[in-house]
Nucleic acid binder design. Structure first.
Lengths: 233, 233
DNA sequence: AAGTGGTCTAGACCACCGC
DNA sequence: CGGTGGTCTAGACCACTTC
């Protein structure tokens, strides 16, 4: 455990007890209190600023953030983590596991050879036993063969076991009307609105590992995140 | 212009000429080349990592990222900026500017007093002259009075003129079916899918400035962003 | 073992804010 | 003016990868 992590953890607790716009002790104050250098203090504070818990005002101080609603910045989460954090108990029903040749879209997204063999998994994702999303994931077979897929384990665990941890994903979100097959599976009226998410997952080293599509029930699922302006002021 | 910004700009150009997974010169190399300290080099590189242009591998090096499609992290943009970056020419048609009492939702979102007077603006947003989104923004009247709203200027410019630059926004995205009035305005079939975005905008100091709702045409608008795992490894 | 990024120190000066 | 955060330096040692 590094010093800035210890400090960041401490500050998180401190900030939790503070009200909005209340000032944090100054950086120079914190460095003597914790017996660390200012760079270390700043690294810890920077972390909390990224999390939306603090904000800096040049020349004035560092202050507690204002919103406790959904302060978090967007993070890569699995369906399981996502549902747990929303207070649902996740489960899933595997609809099919098959060997397919990559579609043109997958070839482009994952930069594959034309018609490369892939493993495709379709799952119905449930929250507290009710359909929440329909998911289709396509993975180059050289990363995961059909016969190696373990229906009882999470996909990301299986990636991790192969040293293919998905670290970064690019997502595209769109509103669509459910076709009848999708609506059926999700328990939605035909033509009901769905949140359609396309995802390309890659490892920390940029290896493109998975191409996923998910259709979330529009009436049960929403997606939250914070955005900021890039320029500092 | 600070040194790390100069370096970051230089590195952005360099990275643009590199192919995926190609190694960047080492940090120690860059510090002698540019005559700066290692901390400065790391600040510049850190910036580019945040932008998705580079990634670090502890013990091995820093490398060019892999995707040129939509590498950017989510940023706060105005409709105007958003459309321009997609290659459309934005315009808008003001539907109404009115004085309203804050709805329960707005009161909660902006932490207002009950029934506080607000200015509400409804606009149809166009891209290349075609309807793209319907937008409704509610602003406490103490920030912007109805009679002070300038229909010819951008809303964010008017905020800026009052030192109320929106720096951070929390958004919630959902798929909904358009009601008939909305569908009419957007030129959509009744019940067509819309991307519904709720936004709470705040200044750098956390002052809650605006509560907005936007309905984007599902068939013309999508929303892209990258996410990463939070833990470093 | 050599080279890389990750953490950390103990300073310094600058830019900005509030009194 | 004093205090604050923002930038920068010139080191040091650690952890990790590669050979």
């Amino acid at each position: 455990m590094h010093k800035y992590e210890v400090l960041a953890t401490d500050l998180r607790s401190l900030v939790a007890t503070m009200s909005a716009h209340e000032p944090l002790p100054s950086e120079r104050d914190l460095m003597v209190r914790y017996g660390v250098s200012r760079a270390t203090v700043r690294q810890a504070i920077g972390r909390l600023v990224d999390e939306g818990r603090l904000y800096n005002v040049h020349g004035s101080g560092t202050f507690a953030g204002s919103n406790d609603l959904f302060t978090k910045s967007p993070k890569l989460t699995s369906f399981t983590e996502d549902m747990r954090s929303r207070g649902f108990e996740p489960s899933s029903r595997v609809l099919s596991v098959s060997s397919v040749r990559a579609s043109a879209a997958t070839v482009a997204m994952l930069q594959l050879d034309a018609d490369e063999k892939c493993t495709q998994i379709r799952r119905l994702r449930l929250a507290d036993g009710h359909p929440m999303a329909l998911e289709e994931v396509t993975i180059p077979a050289r990363f995961l063969e059909v016969e190696d897929f373990d229906m009882t384990a999470s996909l990301y665990e299986q990636f991790a076991a192969r040293d293919l941890d998905v670290y970064r994903a690019e997502q595209e979100v769109q509103a669509v009307s459910a076709d009848s097959a999708t609506a059926d599976l999700l328990g939605l009226a035909a033509g009901g609105a769905c949140l359609h998410v396309t995802r390309v997952g890659s490892t920390r080293r940029g290896l493109l590992v998975e191409h996923g599509q998910t259709w979330y029930r529009g009436d049960r699922y929403s997606f939250q995140f914070a955005v900021t302006r890039e320029h500092e002021k």
